[in-house]
Computed example of a mutant assay.
Amino acid sequence: MNLLLINASPRRERSLSRQLATAFVSQWLALRPHDAVWERDVGINHPPLLTEAWIAACFTPEDQRTAAQSDVLAYSDAAIDELARSDIVVIATPRYNYGMPAALKAWFDQVIRINRTFSFDRTETTWPLSPLLSGKKLVLLSASGEFAFRPGGLRERWEHLEPHVRTCARYLGVSANDVHHVAIEYQEFGDERHRASLQGAISAAKALASALATAQSPHPRSQQENSNAS
């Protein structure tokens, strides 16, 4: 199986979301050492923002694009290819201003693309997805300075990270029931509540990795690729 790890923290060191990602991936590989892991670090290497030239290239049929238009879409093409090959998408991110960092939003904008990952069908209430994007699972690993974002919590109405990711997940080939979230809270407080949240989240990330790793069989696409390779 193939894991795609998206790290969105701008910090190389002392990043709690990266710490969660390390715990999850390490536990996964301990159980499935032959699986592949790709990392796209959008927190350090920011995806390009969408521009007028990008939009024009996106809506130009592939066989009519200029070399310059193909270059504009190069990042998007590479990121979509990674996504298409993945079975598990792991997004490790801080929560900034109650939502996702700009760099992570830019990655979503690059991979959710007309005529690559979805198409328009004005007779339907939802847009058809690419057949390459199906059957995936998504793991969201987050860290925040505040707390109580869960349903019923003090800041439930201020929580825009998980709902946004869940909304976009469909366009990554992930169904609503296949999104899993592990969160660290209280970072700005630095007290026992934060320490308990950190340790609890690391344990939960490892437990989730174990549960998903032992439950998974290769995606049908991966089985076909292996069959072709053999």
Rank of each mutant, 00 (worst) to 15 (best):
V139K: 01
L49T: 13
A106Y: 14
F120R: 13
W127T: 15
T126K: 11
T125M: 11
K136H: 02
A56G: 03
L83R: 08
S119L: 13
P61K: 01
N97K: 04
A84P: 03
E62K: 01
S130G: 00
M100F: 06
P128H: 06
Q64N: 14
K137A: 14
L129E: 03
T66C: 00
K105R: 11
L50D: 12
F120G: 07
G99D: 07
I55T: 02
A57G: 13
L132T: 07
I112T: 04
D81H: 09
D81C: 04
L83M: 09
R122N: 12
V72I: 13
R116E: 13
L73P: 08
E82V: 03
H46Y: 12
Y75C: 15
I88E: 07
S86Q: 11
E52I: 06
N115I: 14
A102W: 02
V90W: 05
Q69C: 02
P131F: 13
L49P: 15
I55G: 03
A53S: 09
A53G: 04
E82N: 10
Y96E: 05
A79D: 07
P128M: 09
A67C: 00
M100T: 05
R85A: 13
T60L: 03
K136G: 08
K137P: 14
T66Y: 00
F118M: 01
V90S: 10
A92E: 04
D109F: 14
D87E: 05
G135Y: 12
E52F: 11
S70Y: 01
D77K: 15
A79Y: 03
W54L: 07
C58Y: 12
L50V: 12
R113E: 11
T93D: 05
T123H: 06
V72A: 06
L73R: 05
R95H: 03
A106G: 10
T117W: 06
A68Y: 03
F108T: 05
A57Q: 14
I88P: 08
P47N: 10
P48N: 01
K105N: 08
S76T: 00
D87Y: 03
A84R: 02
L73K: 09
D87T: 05
K105D: 08
A92D: 02
W127G: 11
E124S: 13
P47L: 12
D71M: 09
H46P: 03
L138G: 07
G135L: 14
D109G: 11
M100G: 00
S86M: 11
Q64V: 09
D109Y: 14
P131A: 13
L50W: 05
I88Y: 10
D81L: 07
P101A: 08
R113G: 03
K137M: 15
F108G: 03
P94L: 01
H46I: 11
T126L: 08
Y96H: 09
V90A: 09
M100R: 00
D77M: 14
A74H: 09
A67I: 00
R95G: 08
L138H: 05
L50G: 07
K137S: 15
I114A: 15
P128K: 04
D77A: 15
D109W: 11
S76Q: 07
V139A: 02
R65A: 10
P94M: 00
Y98N: 12
A103F: 12
L83V: 12
A74Q: 15
V139L: 05
S86G: 10
A102G: 00
L140P: 01
W107I: 11
A102E: 00
P61A: 02
F59C: 02
E52G: 08
F120E: 08
W54Q: 05
Y98P: 04
A103I: 13
P47R: 10
I88N: 09
V139G: 02
